[in-house]
Design a protein around this nucleic acid. Structure first.
Lengths: 233, 233
DNA sequence: TAGTGGTCTAGACCACAGC
DNA sequence: CTGTGGTCTAGACCACTAT
């Protein structure tokens, strides 16, 4: 069972629950402190603490004299965590779909071999997938995978799970290094993302390691006007 | 001059000041709530709020039954450059210079006021600086500063030190949130960075906080073909 | 004007640490 | 045991918004 938590925490949980469930939508008015005082039968200071902390956490927005509202949608692209794009899209209440453009096995050229710390010509798995939010392409994922780390990679149905999800399940992730760049979209990438050639793209290049091996190298293209990475220190 | 702030904020400022000045060192015991109640002549709830918020901000650590202590040093986030651009350029063996295009005092519009959590019309310091690596512009830094956190900002010579360096010396940095976007360079930004209008830029927007106040909000434009953020997890 | 949030008071009881 | 932090109460006054 659940340990009994402080009242202010229970109220926070209740408020967050109403928002997470979708019953209270972005921008909507939230019950006033007085209303919550009556609803929970506690003092106003207790309700105040719950609401004030959620405001500090950017879950709610308060306007003196007016009321308390559900804060605007959280930004996307958590840089620190290794969340996958499908979760992120679902977390925003949108529908995630993906189209698998390629899923095959190739030989590593010199550049790739160097990134994987393997011999040139070594076999690598490769996938090319476009991710959609509702009907809009939001990411082109060009991924290379070390067969040792995910032997069943080619047998996955990547319209149902993301490569990231499969890799997380196959090999314990040890760490990742990434670079972020702004680049003009080349012809092919632009076409797949349904943007103009040369349009600014946010390019995330990520290399993950598992058990001392390079497990995966991915280049992810995002239309500049749709993507944004956020983080905090 | 400065508006009178709430008592709990004054207590926070006092506590942070003692730490920032070095009078209270890392790990040291801080006066108890009762002591602060006597010192400031306020109720315990008010003191409690000040200390609780500083605990949430990782400035203090509390141990029930024992006391309140100055928190251990913040771990240095290896995420996205908390380092300043001048150091980075020098580290690459190139010469850093900068040109100060503006250094003045302005009123906050609604957007800025919201970011600073101040009232619209509040006075903010503003600077606009181009950073060069050898003779090439590599960053356009558009920065707004809370006068409370860096009163002497306008008197600095930013061709010699960077705004970042001055801010770090003026107010203990508690944290930062940032967003990274790819955007086409607007006319003015393109001109200052000596690139074509509409060329992809890597835009870093960073908001730093100190003692629960927003100390600084900066937007940094980098030519997409010159800039790259790196990190690891 | 009535309702909202922003702050503050002067108590209280509890769990826990250290002596 | 005393002193600490953790929580909570039942009021209060104020500034602000909406009507």
């Amino acid at each position: 069972m659940q340990e009994k938590s402080p009242i202010f925490q229970q109220i926070k949980d209740y408020l967050v629950g109403e928002i997470a469930s979708g019953r209270w939508k972005e921008g909507e008015l939230v019950p006033s402190e007085q209303a919550l005082v009556r609803q929970f039968g506690v003092s106003r200071m207790t309700v105040n603490r719950a609401v004030r902390e959620l405001t500090a956490e950017q879950v709610l927005v308060r306007r003196q004299g007016s009321g308390t509202y559900v804060a605007p949608q959280k930004y996307q692209g958590t840089l620190v965590e290794i969340r996958n794009i499908a979760d992120e899209i679902r977390a925003r209440g949108k529908q995630h779909t993906s189209r698998v453009l390629a899923l095959d096995e190739k030989s590593a050229d010199d550049t790739l071999a160097a990134e994987f710390d393997l011999e040139p010509g070594a076999t690598l798995f490769h996938s090319l997938i476009v991710h959609f939010e509702n009907e809009t392409p939001v990411q082109l994922e060009d991924r290379w995978v070390n067969p040792v780390c995910a032997p069943a990679y080619l047998e996955q149905d990547f319209s149902r799970i993301t490569p990231n999800e499969h890799l997380m399940a196959s090999a314990p992730l040890q760490g990742a290094t990434y670079t972020i760049e702004a680049q003009p979209a080349p012809e092919e990438e632009a076409r797949l993302l349904a943007i103009g050639a040369g349009a600014p793209c946010l390019v995330l290049h990520r290399r993950t390691t598992s058990a001392g091996r390079v497990a995966s190298v991915a280049t992810m293209w995002h239309p500049g006007h749709l993507a944004r990475f956020t983080g905090s220190v």
